[in-house]
Amino acid sequence: MILSQIQNWEQKLLPRETERQQKTTPQMVVGDQRDKEQQPIVASTTAEAKHDSLAKRIEELQREVSKLQMRYDSKVAEIMENNKTVQQQRAIINGLEKETKEQHAMINTITREKQELLNRLSEVAGHKLRENNAAITDLSSAIRPTKIAELYKELYDNQWTDAFEELKDQGYPEITAIQILNNTVYDSFEFTSDLSRQYMEHLEFSTKILPYQKEGSQKAGGQNHQSHTAKTVPVRNLQHPAGNRITVEQKPIPTKVLSEECKDLLRQLRKTSAPAHVEEVQMCFIEGKKRKVPPNNQKAMNAFYKECAKVTWYMNVQTPPLSLTSSPARGTPFLTDLYTPYTQSGNMVDYVVWPACLLHENGPLLRKGVLQPFKSEEGVGVEKEKSKNALDGGQTR
């Protein structure tokens, strides 16, 4: 490379040297000859200097290349280390994502279990709160106490009025007719109270009984061969949906004491199923009344019987049941917070026309009753001895 550069320089300098020789004088020729004698020495020195310079440059470049190679190798190693770190970080991220998913699943499970426990706690608290607490009203129920109080008022406004007119048309004195209707309401309340209590006992008993199909076969004559001798409630035959008769026994559950939660559910069942039994309750009550009082074209009285049975049945399936006030004694002060006057004003009780309805026994008032008062200065009442005799003969409460 250095020789080629020298040759290039010589080619550039030859034309100039030729031109200079043509213009030189003899003195210049003599000087040139001296220069020519010294020129090989100068050229040799310059070439050696350039060669040394180029050699140093090559060494520098080689050192720089070596440094760059070392930096390259270092960067490659760094990149490989970074890739390894990235892979490790990705593995950690994947592990964290998996752990996060597991934590989310655990959180969802715990949240669900917490909600279930809160629901159970709410149910238990609600049961404790509702238990024999008439102040807590189920607004979703169609036969809640306020609705029953409305039915009770309508019973007095409608069926009571029709039955009262019918009895008077049949020749009953007014006070006697009132007393008959008043007694009917109390009779109906006692009847449905007993019926509600018996229904609850039946539900509790049925809950303790587990029906099951006995092992064994049944002969044509109807005798059942048992493969065991378990002590059970007497056998009853059931009709299978396919038409075949199967023998079923009622086996009592070992735990005979029902929990309060179970009893609360049964009370709710009694209340919820009450509308479905209204016709049966009405029929049973009317049949009982007909045995005591033979029917005599009493269309309005039958309607009154039916509505009394329905309303008092709804009263007695509540928890606790609604209550009717007992008739105050004659001559006692007229309690205006419980009763409204019938046809006249006064400050003393003469006779009760319609009992008041309470939320529960000795509880708050749901619907006022009606009674006939008299003024204390007027004596025993408007009807005096006539009404006194009639009431003494018919009033039982």
Rank of each mutant, 00 (worst) to 15 (best):
V352A: 03
I58F: 12
W313N: 07
M283V: 09
T336F: 01
T192R: 04
Q298S: 14
L266V: 00
E287T: 12
N132I: 01
P294G: 11
M200E: 05
N244H: 11
K12E: 12
T340P: 00
P341A: 11
K114I: 07
T46W: 12
M315L: 08
K84V: 02
R16N: 06
V257I: 14
T111E: 15
E361W: 01
L3Y: 02
Y339Q: 03
I253E: 06
L265E: 08
G222C: 08
S273M: 09
K147P: 03
S66Y: 06
V76G: 00
K128V: 13
R397K: 11
N182L: 15
S323R: 03
I41T: 12
K75Y: 13
K98N: 13
L195E: 05
E150Q: 14
G31W: 09
N94P: 01
E48V: 06
K299D: 07
E361H: 11
Q88N: 08
K114M: 08
A125G: 07
E131C: 02
M200Q: 06
A163L: 03
P173L: 04
V233H: 06
I107C: 05
A356I: 03
K388I: 10
S206C: 03
P364R: 12
K271D: 04
N296L: 13
K214Q: 10
N237W: 08
A105H: 04
Y351A: 04
S4A: 10
K50E: 07
T336E: 12
K23Y: 01
G331F: 12
E154N: 11
G171L: 00
E37D: 10
T336D: 13
R236C: 03
L338Q: 13
L335R: 10
A105R: 07
K289D: 02
I79Q: 10
D392L: 15
